[in-house]
């Protein structure tokens, strides 16, 4: 019979997570990828699109993309 302390020491294995990214990630990895893409999108927008579409649109899109990656990636 195992004591409660021995049971508590057994690591709990979480079920494997299946996001749309092709690599195994934790939430920090996905936050990192989100920030990478946020910066890349902002620079691209400033270089090529800002003359016709305001940068605020880019902020919204980049944040939405970041949230999507952290949540579902």
């Amino acid at each position: 019979m195992e004591s409660p302390s021995e049971i508590a020491d057994v690591p709990v294995r979480k079920p494997a997570r299946h996001g749309f990214l092709p690599i195994v990630t934790n939430w920090f990895d996905r936050l990192f990828i989100g920030i990478y893409l946020f910066v890349a999108l902002e620079l691209f927008w400033m270089r090529f699109l800002e003359q016709s579409i305001p940068l605020a649109v880019c902020h919204v899109l980049a944040i939405a993309l970041g949230v999507l990656i952290v949540w579902k990636g």
Partner: peptide, 11 residues
């Protein structure tokens, strides 16, 4: 890192 050693998701 992703291209060479990152563990892939097995689908």
């Amino acid at each position: 890192y992703v291209g060479l050693v990152a563990p892939r998701v097995r689908r």
